[in-house]
Structure formats: structure tokens, C-alpha cells
Amino acid sequence: MADTDWPGCGKSLKGVILDMCGVLYDSGEGGGVAITGSIEAVKKLKASDLQLRFCTNETQLNREAFVDKLKRLGFDISVSEVFSPAPAAVAVLKERGFRPHLLVYDGLLPEFDSVDKTNPNCVVIGDAAEKFTYQNLNEAFRVLIGLEKPVLFSLGGGRYYKEGDGLALDVGAYMKALEYACDLKAEVVGKPSPTFFQSVLNDMGLQPHEALMIGDDLVNDVGGAQNCGMKGLQVRTGKYRSSDERHSTVTADGTVDDLAQAVDMILKQRH
């Protein structure tokens, strides 16, 4: 049984999924800073026989700009390895014939270029940060309340993340606000939605038990992955808080100081 528990499960792993913000880097002024040891850790994973994907709920930038930012920080990473909610949402919108009213950060707008946005019949919110003003939220609310069957898509459902030297409200808080106002339930695209994790697994061609998710968000990264049958590991960086280790509903399969430690422990199991 030891092989199915952390860190014993490292032996049988075939793929690793990494959360980005709070695991690879901390966001903040000028694109943020890499977390100590994480650039090296990504290199080690790439050099191993493990498959590697990145899974983020980042919705302030489109994927190209986001990957460029990480390259500037020193990470070896390419767009095809990164899974983010916006492309997933675009696929859903097109498939189901939705024309969105967008409440997202300006940097994300290019992702939605190919989508018809006239006469909206749903609302899509992402982490709009400073654009989350009363006026903008009210506009989204009015679109929803004016629809016969209001539909709200949320790019991620996180509660908060670390920004510079403090914590900031994530899109989940604003999603809840609109849910409460319109008495509806939003559809989350991105973590912790099982469809989102499944699309990453499909891309790697792996079964859930062959993959490990490493993140700083206990509920969305760890809990979300566990719901899909994956193992979930939490790092004590980013938005991690000591109270996470006593959470009432989610218990991580393991908790490590940072990505560097996690990668070292996994690779040690495989030698």
C-alpha cells in the first residue's frame, strides 16, 4: 500500500500537473518573482521520464502573453503545455451557441476574438481585478437578470490568491456575488471543474491514478484533482496558510515546503 501513498506513489507516477501562480512564481509588480528552486525543479521534471503539464486558472493574460512572462522569469515552458480556462470556455461557448457578455481582464480579451459577442445570452467572468467595479458588476448583473434563463460561466472559482505582499480576492468571490444576486449557480470552467482536469489527463493519455497534481490552493488544486481520482500535493508557498492542514473537507495527500522539495522527493522514489 505504501506505493499508493505520498511519497511512495512517486514510483508508479507517469505524469505531473503543476499549478503555476504560487507554485512556480508569486505574482506582483512587474510580472512577479520566481519562487526559489522552482525553475530548477521544472528543469529536473522535464529531464525525467515523467510527462509534465501546467494547469492554471490565470485569466488576466492570454496564454501567449502569460507564457512569455514565465519565460522572462526563467522557466522552460511552451504554450502547448499550458492549460487555462479561457480556451476551454471558448470551446464551451461555441459548442452550446452562447454569445457572452465578458467581464474579464483586458489582457484576456484576445482569447475571445473568435466568439460572437452581440446580443449576449450569457455572462463570462474571469479575474477582472481592478475591473471588478460596482458599475461593471452591475452591468453583468443586469444582463443576467434580463435573461429568461440566466447562465453564468466563471473562469475558475478560487477564493483568493497571493498578490505582491498580500492576499487578493479571486474570481470565485465575484462569482458568488452574482450567484447570490441572481439566485443561480455558475458553471465553473477551469479548476476545480473535473472536465478541466480530465482534458489535461486526456492530453497526456493518462489515467487519473497515474498523475499527481501539485498546487498551493487546497480546495481547487488538491481537492479538485482528488475528485478526479488523482493524487493532490500542497506546497507551503503562494496562498498556503497553516490552517489548510486542518481543513474540514479537503486533506492533501502530502504537504511539502515548495516545488523543489516535491520534485526531489518524487525523483528519489524513482531511482
Binding site: 452591475n138 448583473f141 443586469r142 477564493r159 480576492l169 458568488k176 452574482l178 444576486a181
Partner: peptide, 26 residues
Amino acid sequence: ARYYKRADGLALGPGPFVAGLEFAAD
């Protein structure tokens, strides 16, 4: 309150913002 009636139409009340903070801070 979820929302209220304003001269220019419906507008968000304080409730949604309270609900958002409650969710984020658990």
C-alpha cells in the same frame, strides 16, 4: 438584500458583496 430598484433599473444591493466576502474568507 440582493438588489433594489433604481430609477434606471435594477441595481445590486449589499447582499452579493457580503456573500462574496463570506465565500472568500469562509
